[in-house]
Nucleic acid binder design. Structure first.
Length: 832
RNA sequence: GCCCCGGUAUCCCAACGGCAGAGGAAGAGGUCUUAAAAACCUCCCAGUGUGGGUUCGACCCCCACCCGGGGCACCA
């Protein structure tokens, strides 16, 4: 007895509920990971007869380990992917790394090593983290854009684009980041600063490679209409703004012995043009200026060059400019107007020259005021004369001082009339302009795709033959990579000096590398056949999987990556390699994870370490927290979240699986209200996932857990409805918390993996309620409730409502004027 | 300056134009425990940023404004 006393004491200690009624998070994770590795439930089968779905999430750059942002986007993404899987689709859900780029190069310089060292070490770290995070990726399709097997095809595509005239080289002023020592695309300059490092961008005149994305401006714009329903509105709007289509006219002015064409959206105000302005940094200005004015002009240009974009773009700044000393002839009036140079006119938009109509354009008016130039109103809008008010008028009005336009009062008619006249006289034409510029793709850095071009003194630019691809990077490391203003590749003599593929004579390789956005413009295609060796992708497999049914990622790529990827897809469509024009059928942009109301940052010291959170609460609880936090698009303030609460809920759900006492398969019948709750939950969950309202879906699962708990505690552990509900909980939970779901599934007597089960079914009849509680309002205020059959007629409901004692009381002494009946839920009695 | 999104309980968030509360967190009390944690039970908590309008009825639609977040801004 003594011995057994001791035993029981120990047992009591062991049987502490905190040990017995909770699962060991770390042990469950350790248990299932190898099982899933073995079973590969998410391996996508190209040959499957099932309908295919492609779930794509933006691949990461390998900087360090995964952080909260990755955790959020993949948790949300995985809900959709796992849902489709349960719905019976063959799902392609791949992952890889956007592994070329500057951080690796900077780390290599710091640590005196090769950029690949940093890159591939981080990839391995992130890969392990993704594995533990249990996202349903098909790892057999993993790719890295820095692998020669991948960038071989990036180079191939570049050459194909070039053959189609879509990749070309030109000398032009370009954005230069003095910190990163490389040029930048327009899209990478945000408010005059480098999008990557924040340094102020300056201008340089350089010969660089461009993709002719402007050829596709109209197509890129047109197709946005189709995406409106399934893409976030802000992304569509951002792209529309970025493409910036405008309709207007080219008008030819004569300056001396040459023609200068201007672009205007208001040709109808041509009679009010009182001067012309040419972009100060355009060649045209230097060509037009008189010798007398040249010193003043050159001083001005010098001043403009020095000013940063930030200064230039400030709208507060007074207008500056210089008189070029020449006059231009207005083609419709024959009038001579002065020609000025100014920096408010941009060299690379339109024709780089404008006709200034100060009365009807605020910028021109500001300039005219600054330099005492005349203001002539030609559209009378009824507002005060801009020459007096200094407020340009831009609305509709009647034309004055405008020759044949006088008497008209409609802007559209005025514009059309002038364009017709210009065309008849051969001095202008209607035209369309875009804000979008060609995509500058050269970068003066090492860790990127080498541009497969050889420069030959005899043959000029010569393509590296396709059979020589990939053109691999030379082996440079450490100090070799220090930015010097030219690409580090230029110093690799053995690599640079080659014989011309055409004439065999001495020639030099192009030493720039490609913008990493080129790499990511087609990776989603590569996933369809990641090991294909006869081209960038297997066209049949791309046809089978693409376009992506959902693309989940950050809204920061609204223009950059998404516009480029769309451009690539359109070109490939024109090349006949793909049969669709848009790569991403639908899109979901998640918010960001912040902490204490602020973006996480080192300087604020408010960073939340993902690894520590996973360690403390487990993968499932962290994922659940992120999904449950709110609508996916909203930012999540981690300080407001309770991963501990998430874990508590998961424990609660898990406990159900241990309380079920019926045998597997015992799922029909039982507690009717629980059956109904289960049916309703499954029905709603599908709708909620499809409309991306994952947080509400989780709340519904919580409700079902609560309902099931109640039945069990009331003695229903053996009830078939309890088993059915618990199995449903496990399956629904598997979209968010795969470990505990798998564990529950096993405890319920089933084989793994739960990911390969199918979406729970239910009897439709359970969704139909027999009776409904109808609300009776008097003057919009609830005064009573009546229980009625769900299919009650309006008349019967009204009768029942009016018979209700509480309603009778509320109606005492009042005259019923009208009764609104909305069977079976509501009656509103209006008195009067 | 222009455009978009949001503002519901102490907090995060739900509510086909029809009973403002689904879910969670926090808080209070209780059961259990030597105690604590956990679990379970109970309770507390707003009339929906402000002011108008439409409607039988408005968190929801319309107008104006306030606050917060985001985007665009010398592109002619």
């Amino acid at each position: 007895m003594r011995e057994s006393d001791q035993m029981s004491e120990q047992d009591t200690f062991r049987a502490d509920p905190s040990e017995a009624d909770r699962y060991d998070v770390a042990a469950v994770q350790a248990k299932w990971l190898p099982v899933w590795d073995e079973l590969e439930p998410f391996k996508a089968d190209d040959d499957s007869a099932a309908e295919k779905r492609y779930a794509l999430t933006m691949f990461p750059y390998p900087s360090g380990d995964l952080h909260m942002g990755h955790a959020e986007v993949t948790a949300l993404h995985d809900v959709i992917s796992r849902y489709w899987k349960l719905r019976g689709f063959e799902v392609l859900n791949p992952m890889g790394w956007d592994s070329f780029g500057l951080p690796a190069e900077n780390a290599a310089i710091r640590n005196d090593e090769h950029p690949a060292t940093y890159t591939y070490a981080n990839i391995e770290t992130q890969y392990e983290s993704f594995k533990r995070y249990a996202v349903g990726f098909d790892w057999t399709r993993r790719l890295h854009t820095s692998d020669p097997e991948y960038y071989r095809w990036t180079q191939w595509l570049f050459l194909k684009f070039r053959e189609r005239g879509l990749a070309y080289r030109k000398l032009a002023p370009v954005n230069w980041c003095p910190n990163d020592q490389t040029v930048l695309a327009n899209e990478q300059v945000v408010d005059g600063r480098c999008e990557r490092c924040g340094a102020e961008v300056t201008k340089r005149e350089l010969s660089q490679w461009y993709f002719k994305i402007t050829d596709y401006a109209q197509a890129l714009l047109d197709r946005l209409d189709d995406l409106e329903a399934t893409w976030p509105e802000r992304v569509v709007t951002a792209q529309r703004n970025w493409i910036g289509r405008s309709e207007g006219a080219h008008v030819d002015f004569v300056v001396g012995d040459r023609v200068v064409t201007v672009y205007t959206t208001r040709p109808d105000t041509l009679y009010g043009a009182t001067f012309m302005v040419v972009a100060a940094d355009a060649k045209l200005a230097a060509e037009l200026v008189t010798n007398e004015q040249r010193p003043a002009y050159e001083a001005y240009v010098e001043q403009v060059r020095k000013a940063s974009d930030i200064e230039r773009m400030s709208t507060e700044r007074p207008k500056t400019g210089v008189d070029l000393g020449v006059t231009a002839t207005n083609p419709v009036t024959g009038e001579q107007v002065p020609v000025w140079a100014a920096d408010y006119v941009l060299a690379d938009y339109g024709t780089g020259a404008i006709m200034a109509v100060p009365a009807h354009d605020q910028r021109d008016l500001d300039f005219a005021r600054e330099f005492g130039l005349p203001v002539r109103m030609v559209v009378d809008t009824g507002e005060e004369d801009p020459a007096v008010s200094f407020v340009a008028t831009t609305g509709n009005g009647s034309y004055v001082n405008s020759g044949p336009l006088d008497g008209l009062s409609d802007k559209a008619t005025g514009i059309r009339t002038v364009i017709e006249q210009l065309q008849a006289d051969g001095v202008g034409e209607g035209t369309v302009n875009f804000r979008l510029r060609d995509w500058l793709l050269s970068r003066q850095r090492y860790w990127g795709v080498p541009i497969p071009i050889v420069h030959c003194p005899t043959d000029g630019e010569v393509a590296v033959p396709y059979e020589e691809l990939p053109l691999q990077l030379p082996d440079l490391r450490g100090a070799d990579l220090k930015p010097k203003g030219v690409s580090p590749l230029a110093a690799a003599d053995d690599w640079v000096n080659v014989s011309c593929p055409q004439c065999g004579g001495p020639a030099k390789r192009d030493t720039d590398t490609m913008d990493t956005f080129v790499d990511s413009s087609w990776y989603f295609l590569r996933y369809c056949s990641p090991h294909f060796e006869d081209g960038p992708f297997d066209e049949d497999l791309v046809r089978a999987w693409m376009p992506c049914d959902i693309y989940v990622g950050g809204v920061e790529h609204a223009v950059l990556h998404l516009l480029y990827a769309r451009f690539f897809t359109k070109v490939l469509h024109d090349m006949g390699m793909v049969d669709f024009e848009e790569p991403f059928a639908a899109q979901l942009n998640q918010g960001i994870v912040i902490n204490q109301g602020k973006k996480m940052s080192k300087s604020l010291g408010n960073g939340v370490n993902l690894g520590a959170q996973l360690e403390e609460f487990g993968v499932d609880a962290v994922r659940l927290t992120l999904v449950f936090a709110g609508p996916p698009e909203d930012d999540i303030d981690w300080a407001d979240m309770s991963p501990a609460g998430s874990l508590r809920f998961l424990q609660r759900a898990w406990r159900l699986s241990g309380d079920v006492t019926s045998a597997p398969g015992t799922v029909d019948g039982g507690d009717v209200s629980l059956q109904k709750a289960r049916a309703r939950t499954v029905h709603d969950a599908a709708e909620l996932v499809e409309s991306h309202r994952f947080n509400v879906m989780v709340a519904r699962v919580m409700e079902l857990v609560n309902a099931t708990r109640k039945v069990i505690d009331a003695g229903g552990a053996a009830d078939p409805a309890v088993r059915a509900a618990t199995e449903t909980v496990a399956q629904l939970l598997s979209l968010v918390a795969p470990y505990v779901a798998e564990e529950m599934w096993e405890r319920l007597g089933h084989q793994p993996p739960i990911a390969r089960t199918s979406w729970p079914t239910y009897d439709e009849a359970l969704l139909v309620e027999d009776t409904v509680t109808a609300v009776v309002q008097v003057q919009g205020k609830v005064r009573g409730r009546v229980e009625v059959p769900a299919d009650v007629s309006d008349a019967d409901l009204e009768a029942a409502a009016m018979a209700d004692p509480a309603v009778q009381k509320a109606l005492e002494g009042a005259t019923v004027r009208k009764v609104i009946v909305r069977a079976p839920k509501l009656v509103n009695v209006v008195t009067g």
